[in-house]
């Protein structure tokens, strides 16, 4: 249940987003210590988070349909999607690594999109429960969000190493661009979301 603490906002105080100084600066003015623009809440947080999350959700489809790389062995090309990369590790009995890659490239991006949607919808309908739990989800998302980039790095490394040999070559596929965009968009969406809105909406002043 929402608890009734005295909040900085109710006392006319603002926390600087950059240096964390709490001061009586008015909205939109500069922080007295570090001169950053100080705002009570991230501007247009909901609209921006919605736009970035939906874009990421839409691009997640081509990111998984298109191959992220094609392995060409003796003239025969084999396109590989992100899921196929995880499956190959499972088939090679590399269970621990397969699990890490599965978490980083499937669970993390999909989980982020679902968590963002849940946070957005719960704030917009003014949900009054699970406030702390939603904050834990937000922090989880911030902590693990960038690990999905591992696929992009992997493709660049494989394509550089395996290119000149006559035995095989690895070419990057379109999926890389889509997947990379999804990762960047979810990172930006998590940054755009203001977690304090969870409490604002539970207290009815959104």
């Amino acid at each position: 249940m929402p608890s009734a603490h005295l909040t900085a906002r109710a006392s006319g105080l603002v926390r600087c987003p950059t240096c964390a100084l709490v001061s009586g600066t008015r909205d939109g003015l500069l922080c007295p210590r570090c001169s950053s623009s100080v705002q009570r809440r991230k501007p247009d947080s909901l609209q921006r988070t919605w736009a970035l999350t939906l874009s990421a959700g839409i691009l997640y489809i081509p990111a998984n349909i298109y191959p992220i790389m094609t392995v060409i062995k003796m003239g025969y090309g084999e396109p590989k999607t992100i899921i196929a990369g995880v499956m190959a590790l499972i088939e090679a009995n590399m269970w621990p690594l397969a699990l890490i890659v599965f978490i980083a490239s499937v669970i993390v991006p999909l989980g982020k999109i679902i968590i963002l949607l849940y946070l957005l919808i719960s704030v917009q309908i003014g949900l009054k429960t699970h406030l702390k739990e939603r904050m834990i989800l937000y922090r989880l998302m911030e902590t693990f969000g960038h690990w999905s980039m591992v696929d992009i790095f992997l493709v660049t490394m494989l394509a550089t190493l395996v290119k000149t040999g006559s035995w095989a070559s690895i070419e990057p596929g379109m999926g890389v661009t889509f997947f990379g965009t999804v990762v960047i968009l979810t990172l930006l969406a998590a940054q755009a979301f203001d977690p304090r809105l969870v409490w604002d909406s539970a207290h009815g002043h959104l």
Binding site: A88, L89, A92, M94, L97, I100, V101, A104, H146, W147, M149, V150, F153, L154, M157, L158, L161, V162
Partner: peptide, 15 residues
């Protein structure tokens, strides 16, 4: 994350 990529690359190319 990059370091994890290096690790995965070693395993993937091992065969």
């Amino acid at each position: 994350v990059y370091l994890l990529g290096v690790l995965v690359a070693v395993v993937k190319l091992a065969d």
